[in-house]
Design a binder for these strands. Structure first.
Length: 287
DNA sequence: TTGTGTTTTATTGCCTCC
DNA sequence: GGAGGCAATAAAACACAA
């Protein structure tokens, strides 16, 4: 491109206006204009950096059409931009001299380059946020499915329990109602739980724990302390961790399992902000 | 070749800082 | 008030499919 010229470039113009003078400050200060249609003042492209800085020459000649910078010029500008994306006066002047450009052109190039960088950065940020969002949605769906599964199971088990009670089969230790009275032995937060409290089958929602304790409630405006805890919560209440007695095909023992396991759960303080790898994490742990 | 979309260069107006 | 930054925009240059 333009191999016939050493360093060419026309002064800034947009087809309607152009400036007089060499420096950026001159341009900014004056911003005086000459109508480009005055074709008698057209001038050829610059043929050397010296000519470029020849003010008389510059004043007398008007520019040709807008030209792009050479690959070499762009390369050097890019290198300079990588070093520092803003220009001090000295650097601008030096760059302009080295490249055979107007200081104003160098300044404009940096300005436009910063704008391009900003656009790219916004795109990168968007991609990153979208990826995080998609991941979160996926986790959320997974937790929700687990929750639905658990709810269905509770309904099924409750029905079985009721059927047994109708037949007159006694519960082994305590009735669920008694569980409401259970308090934490160490005087800490009470663990007053029964099966229906833990895994509500009501329309309101979801796996519900005590109102005064930490909660992870599927209510539409879902709240997860942080991304990791979503998985932890899922793991905590995952059916994978329930030692199903249905495996033996008897259908018995499951009630007892739930009965005991839910009673024996311990309350732990949430640790939303620090966690070791592999550490049990969540609002509840099995004792 | 030509129409069209994209990229690059440059201008303008406004704002902030010193 | 001058200098320089940014957003918005114009327009030339370029890329490319039809």
């Amino acid at each position: 491109m333009d191999s016939g010229h050493f360093f060419f470039n026309n002064p800034p113009c947009n087809g309607n206006m152009l400036f007089l003078g060499n420096g950026d400050s001159v341009f900014r200060g004056a911003r005086s204009v000459i109508n480009m249609e005055d074709t008698s003042k057209r001038r050829p492209f610059f043929s050397s950096p010296d000519e470029l800085f020849d003010e008389e020459y510059y004043d007398e000649q008007l520019p040709e059409k807008k030209r792009r910078l050479t690959a070499e010029q762009v390369h050097l500008l890019e290198k300079s931009f990588e070093t520092e994306n803003k220009l001090e006066l000295d650097r601008k002047t030096q760059l302009a001299k080295n490249l055979g450009l107007q200081p104003r052109q160098v300044a404009v190039w940096f300005q436009n380059r910063r704008a391009r960088w900003k656009t790219k950065q916004l795109e990168r940020d968007y991609d990153h946020l979208k990826s995080s969002y998609d991941s979160l949605v996926s986790d959320y769906d997974s937790v929700r499915k687990d929750n639905e599964k658990l709810k269905a199971e509770v309904v099924s088990l409750s029905e079985k329990l009721q059927a047994k009670e109708v037949v007159g089969e006694p519960m082994p230790d305590k009735k669920p109602e008694e569980l409401r009275q259970v308090e934490a032995a160490d005087g800490g937060l009470p663990v007053t739980v029964k099966v229906e409290d833990r895994l509500s089958t009501g329309t309101g929602g979801s796996a519900v724990v005590e109102e005064d304790g930490p909660q992870l409630v599927d209510s539409g405006d879902s709240y997860f302390p942080n991304h990791d805890n979503v998985n932890d919560y899922s793991r905590c209440l995952s059916m994978d961790q329930v030692h199903s007695d249905e495996d033996d095909g008897s259908g018995e023992g499951r009630n007892n399992y739930l009965y005991h396991e839910f009673v024996e759960v311990e309350r732990v303080e949430p640790q939303p902000n620090h966690r070791e790898e592999g550490e049990a994490l969540g609002w509840w742990v099995w004792s």
